[in-house]
Design a protein around this nucleic acid. Sequence first.
RNA 1: GGGGUCGUAGUUAAGAUGGUUAUAACGCCGGCCUGUCACGCCGGAGGACGUGGGUUCAAGUCCCAUCGGCCCCGCCA
Length: 595
Amino acid sequence: MSEFITDKKRTHYCGKINISDTGKEVILMGWAHRRRDHGGVIFIDLRDREGIVQVVFNPHISPDAHREAHRIRNEFVLAVVGTVQRRPEGMENPAMESGEIEVMAHELEIMNEAKTPPFVLDDASADISENIRLKYRYLDLRRPEMQKNLLLRSKVAAAARQFFENNGFVEVETPFLTKSTPEGARDYLVPSRLSRGTFYALPQSPQLFKQLLMVSGFDRYYQIVRCFRDEDLRADRQPEFTQIDMEMSFVSENDIIQLTEGLLSYLFKTCLHRELEIPFTRLSHGDAINRYGKDNPDIRFGLELRDLTDILKTTDFKLFQEVIARGGIVKAIKIEDNKQLSRKDLDDLKDYVAEYGAKGLAWARLRTGPDEWTSPIFKFLKPLEVQHINERTAAKEGDLIVFVADSEGIVHNALGNLRLHLANKLNLIDREQFAFTWVTEFPLFAYSETEKRYVSMHHPFTSPVAEDIPLIATDPGKVRARAYDIVLNGTEIGGGSIRIHQPDIQAMIFDALGLAEEDVRLKFGFLLDALEYGAPPHGGIAFGFDRLVMMMAGVESIRDVIAFPKTQKMACLLTEAPSEVSIEQLLELSLKIVT
RNA sequence: GGGGUCGUAGUUAAGAUGGUUAUAACGCCGGCCUGUCACGCCGGAGGACGUGGGUUCAAGUCCCAUCGGCCCCGCCA
């Protein structure tokens, strides 16, 4: 070859070539995805981030290129000059986006060779254990599926910025090295070198800063920002994650809710070409718990919880009787399962609810006779009770009713999760659907058994509903918050509130939380001070950006939309972080390892 | 802090009751092949059975510990 192709410019992405390019000479650069050597003609599937195209090396067309093509192995980096041609009659590949055409190569340059990768970079063989994928993340990310996920992530972020800019929002960056505050999640700490024995904390969210920006008069703020929480991981939780954060002045709940609906429909329209139905449904927190057992209900299917406590108030059945006497409740889910669930399945359901603290699970199947059950508890119930339960659950012949009797918290937790479990098992979920719902009217406080005090349900800066303010001192559990969460398919993807802008109310809240005044001064003094200088009424919301993208991409794990995620033990398998540091580094920070 | 599950070739997996040379598929290497597209055909190489200890004449298999991946409970304002 007389000159290096690299001196020329790439003309097309592999995945972007189509029938309209027929006859054009193109210059492609990418990776050898797969090679099919027929002795004579050699086919190379060439891959770049936009897709795959078949390159043909024919000894009669270009003997030099064909000779060189023999050396090509998977993942070699290639530059190819060739002509786009329609494939011969009958040789089209409808499974391939570029399957109508191919590129007849004139020139080939092997720009780099590659070791045989530890796994095939093919979505068809993607069931590679995650530790291998994470160790070779740079290869895993070459897979078309991962490329698609991260490209979508980038698009969603860009569209969000566009939306906010179009609506008069200002992006302001807030510090990562900031102050540790009590309440909330465990902080990541960063030792200060200059001020021995003191620490910065990485932000759990920019909450306080965005409120200060409202005090500063920026009026509309947004940021796509990393947040850090040192808590245990789940499939949808990472120690560092990204929020789409926003805050507005001179607004109330409905302004935020409307703007959010506008944002989400814009994101879904521009990035997924899907129209969302707005406004989204709204559920009060109480209704969400009562009907679905959770404050993040999946409303794509039924199986709602029914309260039977009133029906069973005077029951003779000891087990229910005792639970109700202790202040507990009895709730049920009706399942139109057409006898799909066996006795063994029902035993498994009992084990399932045990994980959530339920001591048992009763069941009943409706038989043909009037109000007749096949059920271990049938003989303990009065005919009228059976009849009322059938009515309350609207159960018909063959339907199954499952009961949990326990304290309110356990019943809701157990049945709320059982509901999801059953819907999956019985295939009741429409996977194509995006079902949004708002959850509103949260309680401001929740009583913490472990801490023996009230804690903020949302955070301590959430405004109470005005008419409930007198209750803060007398009956904190009854105070409603001006808070709202947005839930998509049973996953909380965002939450926010109208904030407190009066210092006296903020002080009342800290008081109700049992925080000592000097401690509050020490931790939040700057916020209380700021509120004294003309803080406007304000409120906002923050979205879990990774979770949102995860739902939009239709993947099960948050790690599949994060380029370099951590494992459940918070390790990075690629860089092997965290790792030990030198004694000199520790000394400089005045740190000593104790254990 | 706790429960569950997994760890065998580069990868994904199979290996009853402990038994002599640890299987397969894909991948890899070599050969043949001009229309394949998960190309095909022929041949071949490749193993600390996660790690450490124990029981036993004998351990991938049984026991104990430990490391790691995943899922979950607690936790995550």
